[in-house]
Simulated scan of single mutants.
Amino acid sequence: MRSRVVAVVVAVLASILSAAVPATAQPSPTPTRLCLNAHLADIGWQGWVCGDDGAQVQVGTTGQGRRIEAVALTTWGTGGVCAQALPALALPAPQLPVWWPQVCVGEGEMAVVGTTGRSLPIQAIRVGTGTRAVCLNGHVGGDGWLGISCAGPGSTAQSGKLYPWRQMESLIAWIA
Protein backbone atom coordinates (compact mmCIF):
# COMPACT_ATOMS: atom_id res chain seq x y z
CA MET A 1 0.00 0.00 0.00
CA ARG A 2 2.81 2.40 0.90
CA SER A 3 4.51 1.84 -2.46
CA ARG A 4 1.21 2.62 -4.21
CA VAL A 5 0.91 5.89 -2.28
CA VAL A 6 4.51 6.79 -3.09
CA ALA A 7 3.88 6.02 -6.77
CA VAL A 8 0.79 8.27 -6.78
CA VAL A 9 2.69 11.09 -5.07
CA VAL A 10 5.58 10.81 -7.53
CA ALA A 11 3.16 10.81 -10.49
CA VAL A 12 1.35 13.89 -9.17
CA LEU A 13 4.57 15.79 -8.54
CA ALA A 14 5.92 14.91 -11.97
CA SER A 15 2.73 16.11 -13.63
CA ILE A 16 2.85 19.52 -11.97
CA LEU A 17 6.47 20.43 -12.51
CA SER A 18 5.32 22.82 -15.20
CA ALA A 19 2.67 24.14 -12.82
CA ALA A 20 5.12 25.21 -10.11
CA VAL A 21 4.28 28.30 -8.08
CA PRO A 22 5.17 31.23 -10.32
CA ALA A 23 7.30 34.08 -9.00
CA THR A 24 4.32 36.42 -9.54
CA ALA A 25 2.34 34.36 -7.00
CA GLN A 26 4.75 35.30 -4.23
CA PRO A 27 3.28 37.95 -1.99
CA SER A 28 3.85 41.62 -2.05
CA PRO A 29 4.35 42.92 1.48
CA THR A 30 0.99 41.68 2.77
CA PRO A 31 0.33 39.69 5.92
CA THR A 32 -1.31 36.65 4.26
CA ARG A 33 -1.68 35.10 0.82
CA LEU A 34 -3.38 31.93 -0.41
CA CYS A 35 -2.80 30.54 -3.90
CA LEU A 36 -4.69 27.61 -5.48
CA ASN A 37 -4.37 25.69 -8.73
CA ALA A 38 -6.82 22.95 -9.75
CA HIS A 39 -6.33 20.06 -12.15
CA LEU A 40 -9.61 19.58 -14.01
CA ALA A 41 -10.86 16.60 -16.00
CA ASP A 42 -10.11 16.94 -19.72
CA ILE A 43 -8.38 20.32 -19.20
CA GLY A 44 -5.40 19.84 -16.87
CA TRP A 45 -3.99 22.52 -14.58
CA GLN A 46 -6.05 25.74 -14.63
CA GLY A 47 -3.32 28.10 -13.50
CA TRP A 48 -2.63 29.79 -10.19
CA VAL A 49 -5.21 32.06 -8.56
CA CYS A 50 -4.13 34.05 -5.48
CA GLY A 51 -5.85 36.16 -2.87
CA ASP A 52 -4.39 38.45 -0.20
CA ASP A 53 -5.63 39.23 3.31
CA GLY A 54 -8.83 37.19 3.39
CA ALA A 55 -9.82 37.55 -0.28
CA GLN A 56 -11.68 34.52 -1.60
CA VAL A 57 -9.93 32.38 -4.22
CA GLN A 58 -11.96 30.14 -6.55
CA VAL A 59 -10.80 27.26 -8.74
CA GLY A 60 -12.73 24.77 -10.83
CA THR A 61 -15.95 25.32 -12.75
CA THR A 62 -19.69 25.31 -12.10
CA GLY A 63 -22.41 24.18 -14.47
CA GLN A 64 -20.04 22.17 -16.68
CA GLY A 65 -19.98 18.86 -14.77
CA ARG A 66 -16.17 19.02 -14.84
CA ARG A 67 -14.52 17.32 -11.88
CA ILE A 68 -11.54 18.51 -9.87
CA GLU A 69 -8.92 15.74 -9.79
CA ALA A 70 -6.12 17.51 -7.86
CA VAL A 71 -5.52 20.76 -6.01
CA ALA A 72 -2.20 22.53 -5.42
CA LEU A 73 -1.99 25.09 -2.59
CA THR A 74 0.56 27.46 -1.16
CA THR A 75 0.34 30.12 1.52
CA TRP A 76 2.36 32.94 3.05
CA GLY A 77 1.83 34.43 6.50
CA THR A 78 0.00 31.36 7.79
CA GLY A 79 2.68 29.16 9.33
CA GLY A 80 2.43 26.74 6.40
CA VAL A 81 -0.48 24.71 5.04
CA CYS A 82 -1.74 21.12 5.36
CA ALA A 83 -4.19 19.57 2.90
CA GLN A 84 -5.84 16.21 2.41
CA ALA A 85 -8.18 14.86 -0.28
CA LEU A 86 -10.81 12.15 -0.34
CA PRO A 87 -11.02 10.32 -3.67
CA ALA A 88 -14.51 9.88 -5.13
CA LEU A 89 -14.94 6.15 -4.75
CA ALA A 90 -18.45 4.74 -4.55
CA LEU A 91 -18.32 3.01 -1.16
CA PRO A 92 -21.29 1.52 0.67
CA ALA A 93 -22.64 3.92 3.30
CA PRO A 94 -21.51 1.99 6.39
CA GLN A 95 -17.90 1.88 5.17
CA LEU A 96 -15.65 4.65 6.44
CA PRO A 97 -14.07 6.83 3.74
CA VAL A 98 -10.34 6.39 3.18
CA TRP A 99 -8.61 9.76 2.96
CA TRP A 100 -5.31 10.06 1.13
CA PRO A 101 -2.34 10.99 3.32
CA GLN A 102 -2.20 14.55 4.59
CA VAL A 103 0.42 16.78 2.92
CA CYS A 104 1.97 19.57 5.01
CA VAL A 105 4.43 22.20 3.74
CA GLY A 106 6.03 25.40 5.01
CA GLU A 107 5.54 29.01 3.94
CA GLY A 108 5.67 29.45 0.16
CA GLU A 109 5.99 25.71 -0.52
CA MET A 110 3.47 23.79 -2.61
CA ALA A 111 1.15 21.09 -1.23
CA VAL A 112 -0.59 18.89 -3.82
CA VAL A 113 -3.50 16.56 -3.09
CA GLY A 114 -5.35 14.30 -5.53
CA THR A 115 -4.12 12.69 -8.73
CA THR A 116 -3.67 13.52 -12.39
CA GLY A 117 -4.03 11.21 -15.36
CA ARG A 118 -6.19 8.70 -13.49
CA SER A 119 -9.68 10.21 -14.02
CA LEU A 120 -10.23 10.05 -10.27
CA PRO A 121 -12.18 13.04 -8.95
CA ILE A 122 -11.89 14.50 -5.48
CA GLN A 123 -15.10 14.30 -3.48
CA ALA A 124 -13.88 16.22 -0.43
CA ILE A 125 -10.90 18.25 0.73
CA ARG A 126 -9.48 19.33 4.09
CA VAL A 127 -7.23 22.38 4.49
CA GLY A 128 -5.63 23.92 7.56
CA THR A 129 -2.84 26.34 8.44
CA GLY A 130 -0.55 26.72 11.40
CA THR A 131 -1.32 30.26 12.57
CA ARG A 132 -4.49 31.45 10.79
CA ALA A 133 -8.07 30.30 10.32
CA VAL A 134 -9.04 28.94 6.90
CA CYS A 135 -12.48 28.71 5.26
CA LEU A 136 -13.74 26.53 2.39
CA ASN A 137 -16.91 26.26 0.32
CA GLY A 138 -17.13 23.41 -2.15
CA HIS A 139 -19.40 23.00 -5.16
CA VAL A 140 -20.27 19.37 -5.93
CA GLY A 141 -22.09 17.78 -8.84
CA GLY A 142 -25.81 17.40 -8.30
CA ASP A 143 -25.91 19.48 -5.10
CA GLY A 144 -24.22 22.80 -5.87
CA TRP A 145 -22.56 24.90 -3.17
CA LEU A 146 -22.36 23.12 0.17
CA GLY A 147 -21.88 26.06 2.53
CA ILE A 148 -18.95 27.57 4.36
CA SER A 149 -16.72 25.48 6.63
CA CYS A 150 -14.07 27.30 8.72
CA ALA A 151 -11.43 26.04 11.13
CA GLY A 152 -9.07 27.86 13.44
CA PRO A 153 -5.28 27.67 13.49
CA GLY A 154 -3.96 24.11 13.74
CA SER A 155 -7.31 22.61 12.66
CA THR A 156 -8.66 21.67 9.25
CA ALA A 157 -11.75 22.97 7.47
CA GLN A 158 -13.50 20.36 5.33
CA SER A 159 -15.70 20.69 2.28
CA GLY A 160 -17.24 18.02 0.09
CA LYS A 161 -19.92 15.37 0.29
CA LEU A 162 -19.22 11.97 1.78
CA TYR A 163 -22.52 10.06 1.31
CA PRO A 164 -23.77 9.78 -1.27
CA TRP A 165 -20.47 10.70 -2.87
CA ARG A 166 -20.39 13.60 -5.30
CA GLN A 167 -17.48 14.89 -7.37
CA MET A 168 -16.07 18.27 -6.38
CA GLU A 169 -16.32 20.72 -9.29
CA SER A 170 -15.31 24.04 -7.74
CA LEU A 171 -13.70 25.23 -4.53
CA ILE A 172 -13.60 28.63 -2.86
CA ALA A 173 -11.03 29.11 -0.09
CA TRP A 174 -9.72 32.02 1.97
CA ILE A 175 -7.57 32.80 4.98
CA ALA A 176 -9.81 34.25 7.68
Rank of each mutant, 00 (worst) to 15 (best):
R2C: 14
S3N: 14
V5I: 15
V5D: 09
A7G: 10
V8A: 11
V8R: 10
V9P: 01
V10N: 08
V10L: 13
V10Y: 10
A11S: 14
L13R: 10
I16W: 14
L17W: 11
L17P: 00
A19S: 15
V21S: 01
T24Q: 15
P27Q: 07
S28Y: 06
T30A: 08
L34M: 06
L34D: 03
N37E: 06
H39Q: 05
L40V: 12
I43F: 13
G44F: 04
W45D: 09
G47Y: 04
W48K: 05
G51W: 09
D53S: 11
G54T: 07
A55T: 15
Q56C: 10
V57I: 15
T62W: 01
G63C: 12
Q64F: 08
Q64C: 05
Q64H: 10
Q64W: 04
I68C: 06
T74C: 09
W76G: 00
G79A: 10
G79Y: 01
G80F: 02
V81D: 02
V81I: 15
A83R: 01
Q84E: 14
P87F: 11
A88P: 00
L89W: 14
A90F: 11
A90G: 04
L91E: 14
Q95K: 05
V98I: 13
W99S: 01
W100R: 10
P101K: 06
Q102L: 12
Q102C: 09
V103K: 03
C104H: 09
V105R: 13
E107P: 02
E107H: 08
E107K: 02
G108P: 06
A111D: 05
V112K: 02
T115R: 10
T115Q: 14
T115P: 01
G117E: 03
L120Y: 08
P121N: 13
P121L: 14
I122M: 11
I122T: 13
R126W: 01
R126M: 11
V134K: 00
C135M: 07
L136Y: 11
N137E: 05
G138I: 00
H139K: 02
H139S: 02
V140Q: 00
L146A: 06
L146R: 12
I148Q: 15
S149P: 05
S149V: 04
C150Y: 05
G152Y: 06
P153A: 15
P153K: 01
G154N: 06
G154C: 10
S155W: 04
T156G: 05
T156K: 14
K161Q: 12
K161G: 00
L162I: 15
P164N: 11
P164Y: 14
W165A: 13
Q167H: 07
L171R: 08
A173Q: 09
A176N: 09
